[in-house]
């Protein structure tokens, strides 16, 4: 019997240094994440140069830990998959060059993986993907609706024209006065308030699957600003709850429309903002109502990790899509060209 394929995954696109070992495309033998959150906190956001410096220091330690935990040696590994982009260029370069060097040392193939493909494939680790399917990707840098007919085929049918959802959350958090990273804190606060303020929803042109959150963000800022000028107070939990409701309203409505238009009954949620309680709840409710099968990965697989990269890499391995020695970090890598 042929043994199952084992992929070593490496992810360094932003502020987590991560490595994982995946067997047969679905079994997580290990997944190690070293977060730099604490190092960036005092700057109020991720500082690219500092992120890159941490990655170089951590990279071999994290890969070693992943291999030890998985109890595999280089003999067991079939390929090294690494995030090629998008992300912070200096950060990506550490993962890419480490992957190439490790692969060279043991004559293994290297596979370049798109970070968002990784976020989508996090779902495959939960439940095997079935096609065609629709994915809502919501993260710090992306808000996209992606339609897939089969493994490795991505059709971008809508995306944000300005801020990504996570970004909007972080900015709103800052105006309310919550510390970085604000997204989860706004979520928590929202659960304690009533959504009494009717913030604007950007539906854009008829039939468009694009998003826009900058208007909503400005409305939140203006509301707080006007209240302060009048010397009145708006309860922050009311702001948070109203903002959260406006966000999920648009995301859920457009996603369900896309599902209907493309005639799929499989829906995935991907990316760090999939941790959001309001969005999870509202999307699950809508999916149940329409008889759509929805997958939402556990929190540990929603935020950046290398298990998702190894998983997406597994399918590229099956197709024989290997990178060569010239593999580079590409900050603006497009998904569809993948």
């Amino acid at each position: 019997m042929k043994k199952e394929t084992i992929i070593l995954g490496i992810e360094t696109s932003c502020d987590e240094t991560a490595a994982a070992v995946i067997q047969g495309g679905r079994t997580i033998l290990s997944s190690i994440i070293s977060s730099q959150m604490e190092s960036h906190k005092r700057f109020g956001g991720v500082v690219p140069e500092i992120a890159s410096r941490h990655h170089v220091e951590q990279i071999t330690l994290i890969v070693e830990e992943a291999m030890e935990k998985a109890e595999v040696t280089f003999e067991d590994i079939d390929a090294v998959a690494v995030t090629e982009g998008p992300g912070l260029v200096g950060a990506l370069l550490v993962g890419v060059n480490a992957a190439k060097a490790i692969a060279f040392a043991h004559d293994l193939p290297v596979i370049g993986v798109h970070h968002i493909a990784g976020h989508i494939y996090a779902n495959h680790l939960v439940e095997p993907l079935e096609f065609p399917l629709m994915t809502l990707v919501v993260s710090g840098g992306h808000t996209e609706l992606i339609y897939m007919k089969e493994h490795g085929e991505y059709e971008l049918i809508g995306e944000t024209r300005d801020d990504a959802v996570g970004e909007a959350y972080d900015k709103v958090a800052r105006t309310i006065g919550l510390p970085y990273p604000g997204g989860p804190r706004v979520d928590k606060l929202a659960q304690t308030g009533e959504a009494d303020i009717d913030f604007p929803r950007a539906w854009l042109e008829e039939g468009s699957f694009d998003f826009s959150f900058s208007g909503l963000k400005s409305a939140v800022i203006n509301t707080l600003h006007n209240a302060r000028q009048k010397g009145t107070e708006v309860a922050p939990e009311v702001i948070a709850a109203s903002f959260q409701e406006a966000v999920s309203d648009v995301l859920v409505t457009k996603t369900m429309r896309a599902v209907k238009k493309y005639g799929t009954d499989r829906l995935l949620l991907a990316g760090g903002v999939a941790a959001n309680s309001g969005l999870r709840g509202a999307l699950q409710e809508a999916a149940d109502r329409e008889g759509i099968h929805l997958t939402i990965p556990p929190l540990s697989l929603c935020t950046d990790n290398a298990a998702m990269i190894a998983c997406a890499g597994h399918f590229l391995y099956e197709k024989g899509k290997f990178a060569d020695d010239r593999l580079n970090g590409v900050p603006g890598l497009a998904l569809e060209s993948f």
Partner: peptide, 17 residues
């Protein structure tokens, strides 16, 4: 900075492996 990191990352990763 980036240049140094490319060489150092390559060297340490290969050496570790």
């Amino acid at each position: 900075y980036t240049g140094v990191r490319i060489g150092v990352t390559t060297a340490k990763s290969m050496a570790w492996a």
